[in-house]
Write a protein that binds this DNA or RNA. Sequence first.
DNA 1: GATGAATGAGATTTCATTCAT
DNA 2: AATGAATGAAATCTCATTCAT
Lengths: 218, 218, 218, 218
Amino acid sequence: MAQVSASRWQRKKDARPSEILDAALTLFVEKGFSATKMEDIARAAGVTKGTPYLYFQNKEEIFKAMVRHHLSSRLNAFVELEQQHTGPVGELLQILLLKWWDEVGATPAAGLCKLAIAEATNFPELARFYSTEVISPCLSMIEHILRRGMDSGEFRVLPIASSSDALLAPLVMAMTWAHSFAKVVPDVCGYSHQYSRAHLSEALQLVLQGLKNPTYEN
Amino acid sequence: MAQVSASRWQRKKDARPSEILDAALTLFVEKGFSATKMEDIARAAGVTKGTPYLYFQNKEEIFKAMVRHHLSSRLNAFVELEQQHTGPVGELLQILLLKWWDEVGATPAAGLCKLAIAEATNFPELARFYSTEVISPCLSMIEHILRRGMDSGEFRVLPIASSSDALLAPLVMAMTWAHSFAKVVPDVCGYSHQYSRAHLSEALQLVLQGLKNPTYEN
Amino acid sequence: MAQVSASRWQRKKDARPSEILDAALTLFVEKGFSATKMEDIARAAGVTKGTPYLYFQNKEEIFKAMVRHHLSSRLNAFVELEQQHTGPVGELLQILLLKWWDEVGATPAAGLCKLAIAEATNFPELARFYSTEVISPCLSMIEHILRRGMDSGEFRVLPIASSSDALLAPLVMAMTWAHSFAKVVPDVCGYSHQYSRAHLSEALQLVLQGLKNPTYEN
Amino acid sequence: MAQVSASRWQRKKDARPSEILDAALTLFVEKGFSATKMEDIARAAGVTKGTPYLYFQNKEEIFKAMVRHHLSSRLNAFVELEQQHTGPVGELLQILLLKWWDEVGATPAAGLCKLAIAEATNFPELARFYSTEVISPCLSMIEHILRRGMDSGEFRVLPIASSSDALLAPLVMAMTWAHSFAKVVPDVCGYSHQYSRAHLSEALQLVLQGLKNPTYEN
DNA sequence: GATGAATGAGATTTCATTCAT
DNA sequence: AATGAATGAAATCTCATTCAT
C-alpha cells in the first residue's frame, strides 16, 4: 500500500524533468534563450521558481538536456528508411526531406535548429553536441544517398559537399525562418513567407532537377 | 597648413561613429546582441561608457546603423548592376550572388545576417528593420531576375518564391554557418565546413542547372 | 499552536510592504522624490536593493501606495462624518479641518502634500494621481459643505471656488511649510513658525467669521 | 578704437550672467531643478555647454544667484506704498496683495516660490536666503498693517500671526498651484483651477470680512 | 572667453540563483 | 521534494562637470 502511493509519487518525480524540458522547449523556441526566465519555465511546468534547480544545475544545463531529449532520438528512423530503399534515389531524397519537414520542420522542434544557431557562440559545447547528434548524421545520410545516385548514373557527377548543401539549405532556411523572421515580419515583398510543405517541395524538385543526369534512362 | 589640421577633437568626432560601429560589429557577431555590453563596445572603440551615446541613441540604433553601413548601402550597387545587365540572366545571378559572397558573406558583415536571425524574436524591431532594409530588396531583385529569365525562355517556368529560395538558401546558410557552428565545430563528417567561394559557386551552378530550360537556344 | 506561527518568511511577506512604505515616507519627505534612491529605501527598510520591487512595480508606485495608504483611506472617514452631520456646518468645517490636521497635517504624511507640489512638474503622473485621489475628493467635500451652509442661510452667498480656497489655504500652507522652510528656518519675523493646532484653529475661525451670514438666526 | 571694441565685448561679457540666469529661471520654473539640464540652460542662453561654468561654480550656485537676482529687488516698492497709505487699511491690504499678484504671482517669478518650497530641504541655504529676503519682509509688512487696523478699531483684535497667515495663504497657494498642479492637471472637480485675479480677490475679501470689526464706523 | 567631445559616477530595474522553511 | 522570499550582480542610459583646443 505504501508501495502504491510511493510509486505514484515516484512517477510524479520521474515526470518532473520532462515536464520542465517540455516547458523549456516551448518557451526557448518562442522567446529565445535569454529572454526566457527561469520562473516562466517553472510556471509553465506547473512548479515554482526553485524546483527546476532540483533537477538541473542552471539554465544552460536545461538547454542542453532539452536538445538531448528532443532531437537525439528522432534520427534513427530516417537512417533505416534510407537503408531499406531501393530504386531511384531522387524520390528517396524527396521523401526523406519532406518527412523531416513534417516531423521536425513543421513542429516546435524546428525551433531548436534556430536556437542552436543563435546560441552557438555562447554555448560552444551545445553547438558541438548539436553538430554531432544532428547535423553529422543528417549530412552523412544525404551524402551517402547522393553517392548512390551518382554511382548509378541517376545524378550527374558533382562535388558531394556542395550538392548536399544545395539540397539541405532550403530546408534549413525554412526551419530557421519559421522561428525568427516569420514570428515578427508578417510578409516580405508583398507575400507571406510562412513556408509551406508545397513551397519546400518545389524548391527541392528544382535542386533535384539540377542533379539529374539528362542521359539517364530509368 | 595650420588650416589643414582640424582640432584634434573635431577629427575624432568624424572618426568616432565608424570606430564604434567597427567595434560593435566584431562584438555583436562574436557574442550576440544582448550579450554585448555597451561598455564593451565603448572600450573596444577606445572610449568610455558614455561616448557611444553621443553618436547613437541606444544599442538598437547601433545595430541599425551597422546594417545600413554594411548592407543597405551595398545593395544599391547590386540593383544597378542588375539593371545594366543584358544577355542571359543565369550568368548575372552567378555574378551577383558570388559578388555578395565576396563583399559580405566572406567578411564580418555576414555576421549581421546570423545576428538578425538569432535576435529576431528578442528584438522584433531589429528584425523588421533588417527585413525591410536587406531581405526585401534582395528578394525583389532576385525575383525580378528570375522573371526575366522565365520570360525570355532561358529558365523553365516555375513558382517564383520557391525558386528564389532555392537560389538564396545556400548563400544564407553559408553566412549563417560561418558565424555559428563554424566558430566552434572544426569539421563535420570528417571535412571542414568553412564555406569557400568555390563551394558556394558549385551549389549555385547546381541550382541554376535546375532552373535552365533544356530547349532554350542562347 | 504550531498553526499560529506562520513561516518566518510568510510573516515577513505580510509586513514588508508597510515597512517599505514607512521607510519611503520618511525618505521621500526628507529628501524629495528623485533624490531618494530605491536602494536607500531598501536599506532603510532593512532589505536589499531588489526587494522593494517584489512588492511595488517601481518608485512611482511606491509613492502612489503611500498616498493611498496615508491619505485616500482616511478621506472616506471624513466624507462619512460629513454626511452624518446635522446642524450648523460652520462647526463641521472646523471639526473636519482640525481633524485632518491632527491625523495628517501634524504627522509625517503631511509631507506627501509638499512632495506632490514639489514633484508635480517632474512627475506629472504622480501629480494627477494625487489630484484625483486627494485634492478632488477634499475639494468636493468642502464645496458641498459650503453649499449646504449657503443654502441654509448660515453662510453668505459667495463664489464657491474662492471660498473653499480661502478655507483650505491655511491648512495647505501649514502642511507645506512644515516640510519645507520649517525644516531649515528656525524662525521668521522673530517668532517660530512651527504651525500649531491653535494657530491653525484661529486662522480657520477668521475665515469662518468671514463666511458667516450676520442676519442668520440659528 | 581698441577701447570701443573692447567695451562692446565687455558689455557682452557683463550681460552673460543675466542671460544665463534668465534662461535658468524659465527652465527651473517650467521643469524643476533636477529636470533642468545644464545644457538646456546653456542653449536657452545662446551659449554652449561649458560656458555657464565660466560664471557659476555649478548648478546650485545658479539657483542661488537666480533668486538673488529676481526677488530681492522687488520688495522695497511695496514697503513704501504701505508707509504712504492713510485711511482704512482693509483697502490697503487688498491693493498690496493684488499688486503682488500682478507683479509676481501672475509672472514666471512666482515659480521661484514653488521652487523654494520644493528645494528647501535639498538646499537649506537657499531656503534661508529666500526666507530672509522675501518671506520675512512680506510678513513684517502684513503684520504691521494688521496692527494698524486693530489699533484703529477697523479690525477685530485677533492673534496677529494666524491672521496674517489666513490673509497670505490664498496668495501663496495660488502661486504654488500655478507652478505645480496647474501645469499637469487641467481641471479639478470639473472646473479649471487656473487662479485668476478675480478669484484671488474674492478670497481676500472673504478673509477681510472676517477681520472687520462690525461695530466700526468708518 | 568660448567650445563641445569626452568622462565616469550613479540611478533604476531585472532575474538567475540560493536557502530557510 | 517543493516553496518562494530574498539576494545582489549586472546592464542600460543620463548628465554634471572637465579640459584640450
